[in-house]
Amino acid sequence: MPTIELAGKTYEVDEDGFLEDLDKWNEEFAQAYASTEDIQGTLTEEHWKLIHYLRNYFQQFGIAPMIRKVCKDNGIDMKKLYELFPTGPAKGACKLAGLSKPTGCV
């Protein structure tokens, strides 16, 4: 199993860098990962709101919500979503939130 070291801690991830265990997640993990997903500097209030939203939904349903739902529930549009997570909601946002990698045509 590949591992990754972020901010002095080691995490088990899959080969694309997605965290294996939702519960091993912490805020430093997200912050340390930000730059690899093309996010400059420290994560903002808006980032955190989305990250926690995704984690909550995932905890309840075992999958990230429909993208349209992400936008709607957070009062943002698709463009804004991509501004916040330039590598895309499925890749960047899920990765930072510690969710497992979305599969299929996603």
Binding site: F61, G62, K72, T103
Partner: peptide, 27 residues
């Protein structure tokens, strides 16, 4: 990975659990 997920009981290629599927339909 996707095919294994799909062939697991009640599975699908994106691993969307039934509860999430229904929630999405409601949405």
């Amino acid at each position: 990975v996707s095919v294994a997920a799909q062939l697991a009981k009640g599975g699908n290629t994106s691993s969307i659990p039934p509860a999430a599927f229904i929630d999405t339909l409601d949405f």
